[in-house]
Design a protein around this nucleic acid. Sequence first.
DNA 1: ATTAGCACTCGGATTAAATGAGTGCTAATA
DNA 2: TATTAGCACTCATTTAATCCGAGTGCTAAT
Lengths: 347, 347
Amino acid sequence: MELDERKKKILKAIIANYLETGEPVGSRTISKYTDLNLSSATIRNEMADLEEMGYIIQPHTSAGRIPTDMGYRFYVDSLMEEKGDVEEEKSSLLERVDRMELLLKQVAKVLAYNTNYATMVTAPKYKKTVKFIQLSRVDMDNLLAVIVVEGNIIKNKLIDVKVELDNEDVLKFNILLNTFLQGASLEDINLEMIQAMKAQSGEYAPILEDIFSGIVDAIHDANELEIYTSGATNILKYPEIGDIRQTSELLETFEDKNELSHLIEETVSKADGTGIQVYIGEEAPGQNMKDCSIVTATYKMPEGAEGTIGILGPKRMDYKKVVNTLKNLTIELDEIFKKGEGVNNDG
Amino acid sequence: MELDERKKKILKAIIANYLETGEPVGSRTISKYTDLNLSSATIRNEMADLEEMGYIIQPHTSAGRIPTDMGYRFYVDSLMEEKGDVEEEKSSLLERVDRMELLLKQVAKVLAYNTNYATMVTAPKYKKTVKFIQLSRVDMDNLLAVIVVEGNIIKNKLIDVKVELDNEDVLKFNILLNTFLQGASLEDINLEMIQAMKAQSGEYAPILEDIFSGIVDAIHDANELEIYTSGATNILKYPEIGDIRQTSELLETFEDKNELSHLIEETVSKADGTGIQVYIGEEAPGQNMKDCSIVTATYKMPEGAEGTIGILGPKRMDYKKVVNTLKNLTIELDEIFKKGEGVNNDG
DNA sequence: ATTAGCACTCGGATTAAATGAGTGCTAATA
DNA sequence: TATTAGCACTCATTTAATCCGAGTGCTAAT
């Protein structure tokens, strides 16, 4: 059996209606809702076909139809025309902010507010190289190491050294560290390099140890996939997501950044490169997701680094709106990075 | 009517049993549960008295009794002997961590894990004075300001300056800033001081503007009451907390650090100085709290700064355990600050 | 003062019946 | 041949009726 134009229209009407109401939709509704001018009986026949083909099911005999995962999939892929960008709020969705971290937090928040779903945003991931290191003496036994890595991510590390250092010593260390480490990525810092530096640091070699591990820590930190989330509690607004037990587990997943980063990495790894990915029900990774969908979008930094914006919501989700909002947001982000944040460009 | 010893015993038994089971407790249960050797009939009479006095109520006729807020209050104040410190896990509840932020996050996490309630921890609050400022050139048009404030809280601020500065200029600024700002608190930085600095900065006065506002921002940031939370989803484990709608609002309060900080400030302002405060039901601030209790404890830094640890749970809460855990935790924190973190001590 | 005994209450669980939205199928129609 | 009107049937949901038992309050006996 094939999916002719009329069947598509009906399927689309069913899904659209279901997305709106959340109730199984019956033949009579479609008969009136659409401009097909068909009786409910005819619709019923078509529905039976659509069911046989696997696009819709009845939750029980004598109920209307609801979309299957396959139905949603077809809808997202072929039926849903992504309303040609609604310029509206696109303009100043995001206020200008100066620091990457704040920006991304803001993105998560705005998105959660606009969509009423739970959102997550990862910082762009790329091999981070050291741009600049600054060591300073804070007090008697503490050195402060400030490390700026590519992308103007700033890490601080207090290092407590046993030996006293005067200002000149610190200056020497600064020069030494910058000479060796500027432009280096985490992998570049190996035993060999450490040896070379030790050789040049003379009597202070033992102290270097401390300083070094501090710095490596900091770079390591910067390399971690940072995730910002918002609106987790929105999940509670959708009663269709299983029992409380499941919902609660879902929320915990959301609270645990580690788990979440796995999850995001998994979705991204499946990406086909078109920018926006939609994962419906079982398609999504994670065990409590059968009633959820995940939509992710990828934004790019000028140097090629990529980050992800994602939303998590019920399977019965306003895909049109979500996809659209996500599209606009990535465009806006791309633009911001192109000009504003384009600072971080040398290599 | 007065509360004789027997009535106290019965009240205590009722509350203890209710805390355990969550079910209204009947006269027969008490008759067997306690060593009073009284018949259920006698207990019933006593219960009637206790109800009249306002310590317990029946959810409905022909049900057992449950404690009122007043009953809980009496229990917490007079009945509950705080099991003389259970030394057990006290030992290494907290792993040693180097940075305040991580430490407090850890505290929140451990506490949430141990108690199964939602927890919040605020950073110690005191007038933060500038300890050290470091300006460095990151690239062509960015200056990085690193500000270390009392308590080794470190803030970074990227400042983009329009004019080019060479290393010497930066050095001069550094000296200027440190001369003026070291030891200054947010209030100390006033128009007068700014004028004085401008006078001394000669041709660079306009740039100072940028740098200055950046620094003020950073100090302002550091002065904000930082809150770390954990285990918010634990709230979902206690079905007695009203309907989902309320729970969800409670969770939102928990997600919103601003609201939460108001809430904590309110509880702390009511504190009587004994260290541990218990807010039962209506006593707690916030509108969705009627079924909740809040327990807070105050920890002190050597210099007198104070922070708060709090837990939020259902009114039917294991007060004994919570109060105890909180006590141990503050003691441990106090100790950590006394030695380990005692770095931040000069003025 | 305590207790045994008994009638009474009322929330919660269980069962039964009523409702109604929606289906599938068949026969009539264009 | 495609569409539609009509009708019997299904089944989740709602409403009402009933039962059950934990627990009470009161009274009379110890």
